[in-house]
Design a protein around this nucleic acid. Structure first.
Lengths: 353, 353
DNA sequence: CGCATTTTCGGAAGCGCTTCCGAATATGAT
DNA sequence: ATCATATTCGGAAGCGCTTCCGAAAATGCG
């Protein structure tokens, strides 16, 4: 099966009656070779099923035509979707996609210290991972183009959503439904619990509330790491508050589901007793009829890849792109039951999805 | 920042006062170089932050130290989890991981015809994608080691679960609960609707049913493509049957959720009116209290990677590995309400999760 | 039709590493 | 101390491609 040696450029050249130099030009660069010759070489190459040796080409040109994707948590929908988008356009542009998983702190440390991608890629895209200053410095050692997809690193050219706006939309949806005691389950990155990773999201909540003159009960703002079960636990804390919230806003759909489980197990109903809204529009959100604010994840991947390609071409594209989000109303949110302080607006113009 | 040229082996050699040949040996092969020299070279390399040029090494050795992962649907949990497992051990073994997404039919066709990974990898692992004979032949053109992770291709060395057993477990769980009118929502690959992709799963159902002398109503076995909404539609068909099923078994958790939505929207309750069981133990299954049969996805990835490494080392490992599954009882299954024909066993020994 | 350009193409160097082979040196046995 | 053997190391040839440079051929112009 795998009998004959793989054919080399030299083979093609010989067969086509030209020099390797010409063969190379014929196959790659458009100019400097007569149309007839080019066609002949191409024909021979096709017939011989010639496939260029990428290493040789890379060695000679010094360019790898491949990019590294640095991702934590392949297992979460958000990341898979993002990677899918990136892969699509990167591959279409003829680049190879190397995957680097930096899940836990050790893996993360290993990646930034050893830089396994060094010398192997022309660019790296960090997918929603907040890099520390030190990590950033290490990354720069690679001397390649860097872009960020998702997350909120203004450090590099990036494309993401407007986190503050997303949460504002969610909050305003609840406010419109007459809710005033709104709780929020804030997510932080487990590796970087020091700072609220989605400052933007937290800010959006405060903005929407104050803008609508609704007081914020700090007791109703709880913080935990990403993940459904963590959110479920956080929700328990919220249920132990003197006066229950009438709605809760979670930083992700998974977290919203976790919260819902706790609520139901406590004998309360969603949305009759407590409304729940998530963020993401995870594919399963539709199946469980979860109200959420949709963010275009795949699009972020696509755009980030385009941004990267532009950078690689030496262009000067917009270094920051924010994609729009919008709330998708399903059935986990409803008008507030206990209107404690005269809800001005009672859910007008809200269309069901 | 990126001022000085990257250091080459020659630089290290010069600095250490040895020839490039010796430097290379010192850094790679264990033997043929005095311990003192090796240490000196290593020291210099470290000091100069030397990183070998992979292309040069590859060109010279003819080995790439990287493997291709061929996956459809990055966006589904199953695949992300699997890839995560694969990546972990492959990377730990010093291999690079190239990602090839072959989602839709075109992408798929493009991949197998152009074989973009050709000459770029030492091995490829196909992740739960059923390859046709033609595709298999194309793949072999690459002349590399191939293993399958997940799915049911006995074509290559593989690791997966015993699909028949998994469904048998699910079916038996329902039977133990006294169900007799059990429906199944079968999944097929959208690209290959011709043949039931999970023959094993379908078989497991028939086996369990006949083994327990429970008649199968063919009307209760519906087929659709993977996905929650598809399953939701399939469920509608099941609800239009003269005599409703008392339980439904879906080929994935996503599908189970889709079915549940349809059931609920029809005004029926889960599990009081209809029990639902899925397969996978998707992380969200826990959050929605879905009964399911858990399959160790990540482990399949890990094992598949180990299998591949063994093969690459020239060993002769078991060409087929089946990982165990087990049902995880939560709250979407309950004892059958309408015991139409004297259910012998009424759920003994079932412990709640 | 002759000369200046332009186009097409081959020679050759080089990308950075590995590895075969043989020379030089060290080690051990007698 | 001497010779055989083992060990350590350098020279050099490639791996398969790209690209600079110059020669040869084709084309355009007056």
């Amino acid at each position: 099966m795998n009998s004959s040696r793989t054919v080399s450029l030299a083979d093609v050249a010989r067969e086509a009656g030209v020099s390797p130099a010409t063969a190379s030009r014929a196959l790659n660069s458009a100019y400097g070779v007569a149309a007839a010759t080019r066609e002949r070489v191409a024909e021979v190459a096709r017939r011989l099923e010639y496939v260029a040796s990428p290493e040789a080409a890379r060695l000679a040109t010094g360019t790898t035509r491949s990019v590294a994707l640095v991702v934590p948590h392949l297992d979460r929908w958000y990341f898979g979707e993002m990677v899918g988008g990136l892969e699509e356009v990167l591959r279409a542009a003829g680049h190879d996609v190397l995957l680097y998983h930096v899940g836990d702190p050790e893996g993360r440390h290993a990646f930034f210290e050893h830089l396994p991608a060094r010398r192997k890629v022309d660019a790296v895209v960090v997918v929603a991972v907040p890099v520390t200053d030190h990590e950033r410095r290490r990354l720069e050692l690679m001397g390649v183009t860097i872009v960020a997809a998702g997350g909120q690193d203004a450090m590099y050219p990036y494309v993401s959503i407007d986190d503050a706006a997303a949460v504002r939309q969610a909050t305003e949806h609840l406010l419109r439904l007459g809710h005033r005691r709104i709780a929020m389950i804030t997510a932080v990155d487990p590796d970087r619990t020091d700072q609220p990773i989605h400052r933007g999201r937290t800010r959006g909540f405060y903005e929407a509330m104050t803008r609508n003159d609704v007081p914020i009960d700090e007791e109703l703002v709880v913080t935990t790491t990403w993940g459904g079960v963590q959110a479920a636990e956080a929700m328990e804390k919220l249920l132990s508050v003197r006066e229950l919230p009438t709605a809760v806003l979670a930083h992700s759909d998974e977290m919203a589901l976790g919260a819902m489980r706790t609520i139901r197990r406590a004998g309360l109903r969603v949305p009759e007793d407590i409304s729940v809204i998530g963020i993401d529009d995870h594919p399963l959100a539709e199946l469980v009829d979860l109200t959420t604010v949709r963010q275009p994840v795949r699009d972020q991947g696509l755009q980030a890849a385009h941004l990267l390609l532009a950078l690689l071409r030496g262009e000067q594209p917009d270094r920051a792109q924010k994609l729009p989000t919008r709330v998708v109303v399903r059935s986990t949110t409803a008008t507030a039951r206990i209107d404690r302080s005269g809800a001005e607006h009672s859910a007008p113009g809200i269309t069901r999805h």
